[in-house]
């Protein structure tokens, strides 16, 4: 699980082009959106593609993403439970 979390942090930084953030700076329970990492709705769409491409998980409704992408913890838990 901690491997997956580290992997997610690295992927998010790369996919979303977060140039001046390092994986160490993202805590597992930091909010990814709003006050935390400051991601927005376009980033959420990028993350939905990442779930599909890298973990074989398809989301039909972007609203489903809100809960899943709350933090690295919630993302890792969702992926572990639903991975194809």
């Amino acid at each position: 699980m901690s491997d997956l979390k580290q992997e997610l942090k690295e992927k998010i930084i790369e996919q979303l082009n977060l140039e001046d953030v390092t994986a160490d700076e993202i805590a597992d329970n930091d909010p990814l959106f709003g006050d935390g990492l400051g991601l927005d709705s376009i980033d959420a769409l990028e993350l939905i593609v990442m779930l599909d491409k890298d973990y074989g998980i398809k989301l039909a409704d972007p609203k489903e993403g809100r809960k899943i992408f709350e933090s690295i913890d919630t993302m890792a838990a969702y992926i572990s439970a639903n991975k194809a």
Binding site: I42, L45, V49, D52, K53
Partner: peptide
């Protein structure tokens, strides 16, 4: 046509 992301389109 798979795994396209929105940023470039926008």
């Amino acid at each position: 046509e798979q795994y396209l992301t929105p940023t470039k389109f926008i």
